[in-house]
Amino acid sequence: MSFPISAGLLDSMVLAVVSSEDTYGYEITQTMRKAVDVSESTLYPVLKRLQKSQMLETYDKEYMGRNRRYYHVTPKGAAQLSNYRSEWLEHKNKVDSILMNDSISKENKEIKEEEEVLPQEA
């Protein structure tokens, strides 16, 4: 399998992870790695970029005698995330319509249903 993950997709996924709950670097990387194979070294620049474009802001919180940097989605980030989501849905539907043979399978289903109905009437 070799579908490249674009920078935009990484940005939107990280935004989504942080938007559900303020969280810290390690947890973000672990969550992301559940879905896609990205190394921590890939995610650091993503987080930096999102901070620079004011989609994310950070604050420090003490944890076990050290600081942990938490990330929080700004209103601008939230707006961008909903943009990303609708863009992704549109993109996904378009790809699915071809990749999953959606239109063809739907037609086949309809034909099958008609066939099933006919014998019953007879």
Partner: peptide, 22 residues
């Protein structure tokens, strides 16, 4: 990689792939 992302010499950009879903 960090140096490259901060605009230092020899800019390189890795191509991320979904090759390897865990």
């Amino acid at each position: 990689q960090i140096l490259a992302e901060n605009g230092a010499v020899g800019f390189v950009r890795p191509d991320y792939k979904m090759d390897d879903v865990i």
